[in-house]
Simulated assay, not measured.
Amino acid sequence: RQQLPHLAHYDGRCTSRATPKKRALIIIALVVILAIHARLLITNNLSRFTQTKKSITAETVLLEDLGVFKLPSGLQEPPHMSDLDPNVLIEVGRKDIDAVHSEALIHIGAWIFVTDADGLFLLIQRGPELVTCPNAWGIVGEHTTPDEEPIETAKRGISEELGDDLLDEIKSIQNLTETPQYLVFDWGHRVDRQLTYIWHAQLGKRHEDLHLVLDDEVANHKWLDMDKLKKQLRKEINGTHEVFCVPTETEYYVNMINTTKLPPER
Protein backbone atom coordinates (compact mmCIF):
# COMPACT_ATOMS: atom_id res chain seq x y z
CA ARG A 1 0.00 0.00 0.00
CA GLN A 2 1.33 3.40 -0.90
CA GLN A 3 2.03 5.57 2.16
CA LEU A 4 1.07 9.17 2.27
CA PRO A 5 4.14 11.37 1.96
CA HIS A 6 3.61 13.30 5.22
CA LEU A 7 3.37 10.08 7.28
CA ALA A 8 6.18 8.18 5.61
CA HIS A 9 8.76 8.81 8.37
CA TYR A 10 6.47 8.90 11.49
CA ASP A 11 7.88 6.58 14.18
CA GLY A 12 5.52 7.36 17.10
CA ARG A 13 7.75 9.96 18.79
CA CYS A 14 7.02 13.63 19.14
CA THR A 15 9.50 15.42 16.99
CA SER A 16 8.67 18.94 18.18
CA ARG A 17 10.99 20.49 20.75
CA ALA A 18 10.35 23.42 23.08
CA THR A 19 12.66 26.32 22.62
CA PRO A 20 14.59 27.63 25.66
CA LYS A 21 12.23 30.60 25.80
CA LYS A 22 9.17 28.33 25.95
CA ARG A 23 10.76 26.16 28.62
CA ALA A 24 11.48 29.26 30.70
CA LEU A 25 7.86 30.43 30.39
CA ILE A 26 6.59 26.99 31.40
CA ILE A 27 8.85 26.96 34.47
CA ILE A 28 7.73 30.47 35.46
CA ALA A 29 4.06 29.45 35.10
CA LEU A 30 4.61 26.37 37.28
CA VAL A 31 6.37 28.46 39.93
CA VAL A 32 3.50 30.97 39.97
CA ILE A 33 0.91 28.18 40.29
CA LEU A 34 2.84 26.57 43.16
CA ALA A 35 3.22 29.93 44.91
CA ILE A 36 -0.53 30.62 44.68
CA HIS A 37 -1.31 27.13 45.97
CA ALA A 38 1.10 27.53 48.88
CA ARG A 39 -0.38 30.92 49.77
CA LEU A 40 -3.90 29.47 49.80
CA LEU A 41 -2.77 26.66 52.09
CA ILE A 42 -1.08 29.10 54.48
CA THR A 43 -4.13 31.41 54.52
CA ASN A 44 -6.51 28.52 55.24
CA ASN A 45 -4.29 27.18 58.01
CA LEU A 46 -3.95 30.63 59.60
CA SER A 47 -7.72 31.09 59.46
CA ARG A 48 -8.28 27.72 61.14
CA PHE A 49 -5.64 28.52 63.75
CA THR A 50 -7.22 31.91 64.51
CA GLN A 51 -10.69 30.38 64.86
CA THR A 52 -9.34 27.62 67.08
CA LYS A 53 -7.45 30.14 69.22
CA LYS A 54 -10.58 32.27 69.63
CA SER A 55 -12.61 29.21 70.54
CA ILE A 56 -10.03 28.07 73.09
CA THR A 57 -9.77 31.59 74.56
CA ALA A 58 -13.54 31.93 74.87
CA GLU A 59 -13.81 28.48 76.42
CA THR A 60 -10.99 29.26 78.86
CA VAL A 61 -12.73 32.43 80.04
CA LEU A 62 -16.05 30.60 80.24
CA LEU A 63 -14.72 27.66 82.24
CA GLU A 64 -12.30 29.56 84.44
CA ASP A 65 -12.98 29.28 88.14
CA LEU A 66 -14.51 32.24 89.94
CA GLY A 67 -13.15 33.80 93.08
CA VAL A 68 -15.37 33.01 96.08
CA PHE A 69 -15.69 35.05 99.26
CA LYS A 70 -17.21 35.07 102.72
CA LEU A 71 -18.30 37.75 105.13
CA PRO A 72 -16.18 38.34 108.23
CA SER A 73 -17.40 36.71 111.42
CA GLY A 74 -19.83 38.91 113.29
CA LEU A 75 -21.12 40.63 110.15
CA GLN A 76 -24.65 39.60 109.27
CA GLU A 77 -25.55 38.94 105.67
CA PRO A 78 -26.74 42.19 104.07
CA PRO A 79 -30.27 42.36 102.67
CA HIS A 80 -30.93 41.98 98.97
CA MET A 81 -30.09 45.07 96.87
CA SER A 82 -27.99 46.75 99.54
CA ASP A 83 -24.63 48.50 99.36
CA LEU A 84 -21.64 46.38 100.32
CA ASP A 85 -18.04 47.50 100.49
CA PRO A 86 -16.00 44.87 98.59
CA ASN A 87 -13.08 45.42 100.96
CA VAL A 88 -14.93 43.67 103.79
CA LEU A 89 -15.12 40.40 101.87
CA ILE A 90 -12.61 37.67 102.61
CA GLU A 91 -11.49 35.57 99.65
CA VAL A 92 -11.59 31.88 100.49
CA GLY A 93 -10.56 30.30 97.19
CA ARG A 94 -11.81 29.56 93.70
CA LYS A 95 -14.52 27.29 92.38
CA ASP A 96 -16.21 26.60 89.07
CA ILE A 97 -19.41 28.44 88.31
CA ASP A 98 -21.71 25.46 88.95
CA ALA A 99 -20.27 24.94 92.43
CA VAL A 100 -20.48 28.67 93.14
CA HIS A 101 -24.23 28.63 92.54
CA SER A 102 -25.07 25.20 93.94
CA GLU A 103 -23.24 26.04 97.18
CA ALA A 104 -24.63 29.61 97.28
CA LEU A 105 -21.16 31.16 97.51
CA ILE A 106 -20.51 34.89 97.32
CA HIS A 107 -18.84 35.95 94.08
CA ILE A 108 -18.42 39.15 92.05
CA GLY A 109 -20.05 40.18 88.79
CA ALA A 110 -21.43 43.01 86.71
CA TRP A 111 -24.68 44.21 85.21
CA ILE A 112 -24.36 46.53 82.24
CA PHE A 113 -27.14 48.78 80.97
CA VAL A 114 -26.34 49.72 77.36
CA THR A 115 -27.93 52.73 75.66
CA ASP A 116 -27.38 54.16 72.20
CA ALA A 117 -26.85 57.81 71.21
CA ASP A 118 -30.62 58.40 71.27
CA GLY A 119 -30.92 57.04 74.81
CA LEU A 120 -32.61 53.79 73.78
CA PHE A 121 -31.99 50.81 76.04
CA LEU A 122 -30.68 47.53 74.70
CA LEU A 123 -32.49 44.43 75.93
CA ILE A 124 -31.27 40.94 75.13
CA GLN A 125 -33.26 37.73 75.20
CA ARG A 126 -31.55 34.84 76.93
CA GLY A 127 -31.25 31.57 75.05
CA PRO A 128 -33.65 28.68 75.73
CA GLU A 129 -30.82 26.39 76.85
CA LEU A 130 -29.68 28.59 79.75
CA VAL A 131 -30.28 27.29 83.28
CA THR A 132 -31.42 30.61 84.74
CA CYS A 133 -34.14 32.73 83.10
CA PRO A 134 -34.31 30.83 79.78
CA ASN A 135 -36.05 32.85 77.04
CA ALA A 136 -36.35 35.83 79.39
CA TRP A 137 -35.43 39.41 78.52
CA GLY A 138 -32.79 41.28 80.46
CA ILE A 139 -29.54 43.22 80.23
CA VAL A 140 -25.91 42.27 79.74
CA GLY A 141 -24.39 40.47 82.72
CA GLU A 142 -21.01 38.90 83.42
CA HIS A 143 -19.10 37.14 86.20
CA THR A 144 -15.77 38.56 87.31
CA THR A 145 -12.82 36.23 86.88
CA PRO A 146 -9.94 36.20 89.39
CA ASP A 147 -7.61 39.21 89.25
CA GLU A 148 -9.97 41.05 86.89
CA GLU A 149 -10.85 44.69 87.54
CA PRO A 150 -14.60 45.53 87.64
CA ILE A 151 -14.38 47.78 84.57
CA GLU A 152 -12.68 44.96 82.67
CA THR A 153 -15.57 42.65 83.53
CA ALA A 154 -18.05 45.17 82.14
CA LYS A 155 -16.14 45.59 78.89
CA ARG A 156 -15.64 41.85 78.50
CA GLY A 157 -19.36 41.29 79.03
CA ILE A 158 -20.16 43.74 76.23
CA SER A 159 -17.54 42.18 73.97
CA GLU A 160 -18.62 38.58 74.53
CA GLU A 161 -22.38 39.10 74.35
CA LEU A 162 -22.57 41.88 71.75
CA GLY A 163 -19.32 41.72 69.77
CA ASP A 164 -15.87 43.31 69.86
CA ASP A 165 -16.93 46.14 67.53
CA LEU A 166 -19.19 47.61 70.20
CA LEU A 167 -16.25 48.33 72.50
CA ASP A 168 -15.04 50.97 70.05
CA GLU A 169 -18.45 52.66 70.15
CA ILE A 170 -18.56 53.26 73.92
CA LYS A 171 -18.79 56.99 74.58
CA SER A 172 -18.86 56.67 78.36
CA ILE A 173 -19.14 53.96 80.98
CA GLN A 174 -19.80 54.65 84.63
CA ASN A 175 -21.04 53.09 87.85
CA LEU A 176 -24.65 53.77 88.79
CA THR A 177 -24.00 53.22 92.50
CA GLU A 178 -21.16 54.44 94.72
CA THR A 179 -20.58 50.92 96.01
CA PRO A 180 -21.45 47.57 94.41
CA GLN A 181 -24.78 45.97 95.23
CA TYR A 182 -25.27 42.76 97.17
CA LEU A 183 -27.85 40.78 95.20
CA VAL A 184 -29.35 37.46 96.28
CA PHE A 185 -31.59 35.39 94.01
CA ASP A 186 -33.02 32.03 95.02
CA TRP A 187 -33.94 30.24 91.80
CA GLY A 188 -34.95 27.04 93.59
CA HIS A 189 -32.35 24.88 91.86
CA ARG A 190 -29.55 27.34 92.65
CA VAL A 191 -28.85 30.40 94.76
CA ASP A 192 -27.02 33.40 93.37
CA ARG A 193 -25.14 35.56 95.90
CA GLN A 194 -23.35 38.18 93.87
CA LEU A 195 -21.61 41.41 94.72
CA THR A 196 -22.64 43.28 91.59
CA TYR A 197 -21.19 46.37 89.99
CA ILE A 198 -23.98 48.21 88.15
CA TRP A 199 -22.73 49.94 84.99
CA HIS A 200 -24.21 52.22 82.37
CA ALA A 201 -22.44 52.17 79.01
CA GLN A 202 -23.56 54.85 76.57
CA LEU A 203 -22.69 54.35 72.92
CA GLY A 204 -21.80 57.15 70.55
CA LYS A 205 -23.97 55.96 67.66
CA ARG A 206 -27.63 55.29 67.03
CA HIS A 207 -28.53 51.61 67.16
CA GLU A 208 -29.25 51.55 63.40
CA ASP A 209 -25.58 52.31 62.81
CA LEU A 210 -24.19 49.72 65.22
CA HIS A 211 -22.85 46.30 64.27
CA LEU A 212 -23.81 43.69 66.86
CA VAL A 213 -22.43 40.15 66.88
CA LEU A 214 -24.62 38.34 69.40
CA ASP A 215 -23.26 35.53 71.54
CA ASP A 216 -24.67 32.02 71.06
CA GLU A 217 -26.45 32.38 74.41
CA VAL A 218 -28.32 35.48 73.19
CA ALA A 219 -31.48 34.57 71.27
CA ASN A 220 -32.62 38.06 70.28
CA HIS A 221 -32.36 41.76 71.08
CA LYS A 222 -34.39 44.96 70.90
CA TRP A 223 -34.08 48.67 71.69
CA LEU A 224 -36.63 50.52 73.84
CA ASP A 225 -36.90 54.07 75.06
CA MET A 226 -37.08 54.76 78.79
CA ASP A 227 -40.89 55.09 78.95
CA LYS A 228 -41.59 51.86 77.04
CA LEU A 229 -39.03 49.98 79.08
CA LYS A 230 -40.54 51.14 82.36
CA LYS A 231 -44.06 50.27 81.18
CA GLN A 232 -43.01 46.77 80.17
CA LEU A 233 -41.15 46.25 83.44
CA ARG A 234 -44.16 47.44 85.43
CA LYS A 235 -46.46 45.08 83.51
CA GLU A 236 -44.05 42.22 84.13
CA ILE A 237 -43.90 43.01 87.85
CA ASN A 238 -47.70 42.89 87.86
CA GLY A 239 -47.58 39.56 86.03
CA THR A 240 -49.24 40.68 82.80
CA HIS A 241 -46.44 40.84 80.25
CA GLU A 242 -43.67 38.85 78.60
CA VAL A 243 -41.02 37.34 80.82
CA PHE A 244 -38.25 39.56 82.14
CA CYS A 245 -35.40 38.28 84.24
CA VAL A 246 -35.41 40.12 87.61
CA PRO A 247 -37.77 42.96 86.55
CA THR A 248 -38.01 44.61 89.99
CA GLU A 249 -34.25 45.03 90.25
CA THR A 250 -33.98 46.16 86.63
CA GLU A 251 -36.62 48.84 87.18
CA TYR A 252 -34.89 50.07 90.34
CA TYR A 253 -31.54 50.65 88.63
CA VAL A 254 -33.05 51.98 85.39
CA ASN A 255 -34.42 54.89 87.40
CA MET A 256 -30.83 55.92 88.20
CA ILE A 257 -29.90 56.39 84.55
CA ASN A 258 -29.85 59.75 82.85
CA THR A 259 -30.46 59.04 79.16
CA THR A 260 -29.17 62.30 77.73
CA LYS A 261 -29.35 62.27 73.96
CA LEU A 262 -25.91 62.69 72.43
CA PRO A 263 -25.28 64.97 69.44
CA PRO A 264 -24.73 63.07 66.19
CA GLU A 265 -21.12 62.17 65.47
CA ARG A 266 -19.42 64.04 62.66
Results as ranks from 00 to 15, higher is better:
A117D: 11
G188V: 06
A99F: 15
T179S: 13
I158K: 03
N175S: 06
Q202F: 13
V184S: 10
I112N: 06
R206F: 04
E178Q: 12
S82M: 11
T145I: 13
V191L: 08
V191E: 11
R156L: 03
I198S: 01
S172P: 03
Q174E: 15
V131A: 14
T115V: 09
D83A: 06
R94C: 12
L89G: 08
G157K: 04
G204K: 02
P146E: 08
R190Y: 08
E152H: 03
E169Y: 00
S73L: 15
P128M: 02
T145H: 06
E149I: 04
W187N: 04
L167D: 04
V114Y: 09
I90D: 08
R126Y: 05
T153K: 02
L75A: 00
R94D: 13
R94H: 09
H143W: 09
V191P: 06
G93H: 06
V100Q: 12
I170N: 00
G119D: 06
L84G: 07
E103S: 12
A104M: 12
F113N: 04
G119Q: 06
N175D: 13
V131T: 09
N87L: 14
W111I: 13
E149H: 04
G119S: 02
A117P: 09
H143S: 08
K171D: 15
L105K: 04
T132L: 13
P78M: 09
L162E: 06
A104I: 06
L176C: 07
D116N: 00
P134T: 04
A99Q: 15
S82R: 07
D165K: 10
E152I: 01
I158F: 08
V140C: 10
I151D: 05
S73Q: 14
K205Q: 09
I158S: 03
I124R: 03
E91I: 05
P128G: 05
L84H: 07
V131P: 05
A99P: 11
G141S: 12
E208P: 00
Q194E: 14
P86M: 15
L105H: 04
L167W: 10
T145D: 13
E149F: 05
L75R: 06
A154D: 06
I158N: 10
D165T: 11
E103Y: 15
L120P: 00
D192G: 07
E178K: 12
A136L: 12
V100I: 12
V184T: 14
I170M: 07
H189N: 12
A104Y: 13
E91L: 12
